[in-house]
Amino acid sequence: MVIDKVKKVNEEEKDVKKNVKAADMMIGKWVKCDSCKEIIYKEELHQNLSACPNCGKHFRLSARRRIKQIADEGTFKEIGKDILTKDPLNFKGYMKKVEGLKEKTKIDEAVKCGICEIERQKAVLGVMDGNFLMGSMGSAVGERITLAIETAIKKKLPLVLFCVSGGARMQEGIISLMQMAKTSSAIARLNDAGLLYISVLTDPTTGGVTASFASLGDIVLAEPNALIGFAGPRVIEQTIRQKLPEGFQRSEFLLEHGFIDKIVERKDMKHTLGELIRLHTKN
């Protein structure tokens, strides 16, 4: 009986806590982890590199936050900022959508590239951003990535690309398909120049990005539990008319099947990159 009462009080307290949290969530201070369902204080989440402090789930990251996590403070110098979205198909509503997104997200395309230092070693860093049309690759993304690769070749620097993408930018039609050829050919040249390319796959990396530069790293890393594949899971389910097994197309699945070298948690990412770059530096 007493125990019951205590339980009840605890539950009431929990309810109050829940309500407080709900109120705070309304003003945007809290988020719910969709993996463990825990309510997390946003500040704490960000301090934990946007990985859930409770279950470790890696939340999706903006390019801005990612660069902050990877590049040594104050070293990132953006390149290719003047390369902007094109509308080759004259696709209805596309530019309007892009302008609206730019306004809302304060980012100008689905990738940000630059030269920076990672653990005091110079590198070219490209980071895709899923907040901009699902990180899809159109001509601006392809062009910026290619410029990053060519910059690495010109300056003889290692290249690190963080991938997150829903695939090709449909609104740019065949032009977006050709970005796969453009970026992959540039990687071929980087290889001929004997330079290191580390590709990091984050949630989600699919479609035309998977089928081009994302898969071509000398070393391919992935964040835990990221969805990585060519075809999307829904398309596959429709094709084979059966449910996909648990964990299908996740980082751990790809590791098991031999398509990535290593799964690296966010807290270890910068140091892992730093180490790998060091191991490829000739004196």
């Binding site: 898969s215 071509l216 594949g229 099947h257």
Partner: peptide, 11 residues
């Protein structure tokens, strides 16, 4: 590795 196969061919 459908994605990898396509990427490698293109490259």
């Amino acid at each position: 590795g459908q994605g990898e196969a396509i990427a490698r061919n293109i490259m």
